[in-house]
Design a protein around this nucleic acid. Structure first.
Lengths: 354, 354
DNA sequence: TTGTAAGCGTTATCAC
DNA sequence: GTGATAACGCTTACAA
């Protein structure tokens, strides 16, 4: 355990009575090696606690044992969750995570990213939305020889190497749940158009309404950008409608919190006067009053899987799942619409999840 | 701009007609250099877009241009804010940020940390609470020659190289505000004892009560650990008291959200029946209903200042402020106690901050 | 003030 | 299978 910082490959080579190249082969798990030699060197390395110097490896091999996380995501909790997943996967390996925020939509994006990759000699990059949806970024990675793993919602336009969750199906289910409770005047607070997640979630919402034969007037759809403030504004507009919605599906939790906020300002009771469902299951969702019914996207698991795939030496390790299921988390922000309260439920009651 | 990845110090040296050592001196801003030579080389470097290879520098010099963020902090938003501040400071420099979570209280902590520092040859470490309060960690940094910057609340036991905010004074002010509104039955939800912030905040609370001559029975103090759930439990206990508090100060926002949650469950109106103040001004604080009055700790600014201090080449840059003021953010979770409502205010009304 | 030579600790090349 | 020897691109002595 002691003096570990001073041990070099030369020490190991000398003590094992082999050349440094052989030790290098052991370290790098080269297939062409006598099993006995490997075992002997491996044991010596373990006994002495030798750890190869990452800087020297980086210089000699041309790539660093660094996984980059580049994000331009507005949601702090999502970024933290992704970091969590990455670090989970990296724990116990020789890799470290380096984080770099980027200005979404900046013209310098590609240049900065290239400089980042080349300068740090990144081993790989984890891309999260909305960057994961940018084909130019993926192309840059391929060109620079930097591996990458993408995280995002599935969908017809999703690349097939992406680690995904099925947002559309999840929202369809959530909306279907509202319908099953008797809601008919259901509004939607959308996310930003340039996020595939926003488009997928809207598609799921629309699909559920179509299947139930419910019309969706334009007035029942409000734009948002995934931030609280836009949820607040959207909520105030929707709740001022003559035909006020009895339920609102929001494309993420922050905006749902904004809608609940708007309801509070107007003196409306949630869920008595208005049911609300969000998406993401951020901590805020559980901490607001009433607790928010929402869709849980298994982002930590997905980030872990993506990272494992990234650092997998062989393709055998990489054949893990690519699609992770989202689940509806039932809390207190949803109920039967007031006009139906006290009446016989239209359908069987829904079991509480978890 | 092109082929920047291929340029080496040798190319620059040859083209500038100097030795590579001279180029190295230019890169490293060595003071002993002919200004003309420096200018000439500098211009060539700029013209060619040459960027020194960080891996080679790391290997040769023994330290990497990496700033580590080690955290065992339970609050995701705080961690994100610190990352924000660090990256702000690092933007435009040659440094990158590498993040590493640690298991707080783990016996392997010091060993892991040492391995991390030595393996990555970290240039410096940003320490946030509660790690910033651990003298053993600071000692380890000194021993390994890794610079460090500490973030945390000021206080009698705070080291004087720490970048601080004055939690005690801020809480004293916040509590004084409650008292000035007429509250007398004021409860406290504490943070974990091993965080100095928790101790300082309690001290500020107690000080305010003492100054106003208000007794603080043990029953009016509830333990918490900075997480929502403990705030919920504390709130339920405090609100079940025969002498129910009319105001509760919570040592952070998450626990305040828990208390508001508990009030909601009991059918109590906030702020009508209960005023609540939190600490941190996380996004959740603004997003819950009612919006939470809270203390804003300038954590992003502090992290930025700490990082600038860390990477400052000369001490001239490091003489920036060490103490950053916190401010009380007035929102809707506080009002005059119900028993006094409608009566003449005891004091002048308080201006809305911001 | 500047240059020369010797590393830093690995991996790559190409013999054996 | 294994081992000399040369990179990798830079910094640090130590000269000049």
């Amino acid at each position: 355990m002691k003096a570990r910082a001073k041990l070099t490959i030369n020490d190991i080579a000398r003590m094992a009575g082999v050349s440094k190249k052989t030790v290098s082969r052991v370290i790098n798990r080269s297939p062409e090696l006598n099993p006995d030699t490997r075992k002997r060197v491996d044991e010596l390395i373990a006994a002495l606690g030798y750890v190869p110097n990452p800087q020297a490896r980086a210089l000699a091999s041309g790539h660093n044992f660094l996984i980059g996380l580049v994000h331009g995501n507005p949601n702090a909790q999502t970024v933290m969750n992704v970091q969590h997943g990455i670090l989970d996967a990296l724990c116990g390996t020789e890799f470290e995570m380096v984080v770099r925020p980027i200005q979404r939509g900046s013209p310098a994006l590609l240049g900065d990213l290239r400089a980042f990759i080349e300068r740090q000699r990144l081993f790989g990059l984890v891309l999260m939305p909305p960057l994961s949806e940018d084909e130019a970024v993926a192309a840059l990675c391929r060109e620079t020889g930097c591996r990458y793993a993408r995280l995002g919602p599935s969908g017809p336009d999703a690349p097939d190497d992406m680690v995904t969750s099925n947002d559309r199906a999840a929202v369809r289910e959530a909306t279907g749940y509202l319908i099953s409770l008797g809601h008919r005047a259901i509004a939607l607070v959308e996310g930003p158009e340039d996020f595939r997640s926003a488009r997928e979630r809207r598609a799921g919402f629309e699909q559920a309404l179509v299947e139930a034969g419910i019309a969706l007037p334009r007035s029942m759809m409000a734009e948002g950008d995934y931030r609280f403030e836009t949820g607040l504004i959207a909520g105030e507009r929707l709740l001022a409608l003559t035909q006020r919605p009895t339920a609102i599906f929001c494309c993420n939790d922050e905006m749902a919190a904004g809608v609940i906020h708007a309801a509070g300002r107007l003196g409306l009771d949630v869920p008595g006067d208005l049911s609300v469902i969000g998406f993401d299951d951020t901590p805020t969702a559980a901490h607001i009053w009433p607790p928010l019914t929402t869709v849980r996207w298994p982002i930590v698991t997905m980030a872990r899987a993506a990272t494992l795939r990234l650092i997998a030496a062989n393709d055998r390790d990489a054949d893990s799942a690519l699609l992770f299921p989202s689940t509806l988390i039932h809390r207190a922000s949803v109920s039967v619409p007031a006009v139906l309260a006290g009446m016989k439920p239209l359908l069987e009651p829904i079991d509480e999840a978890r």
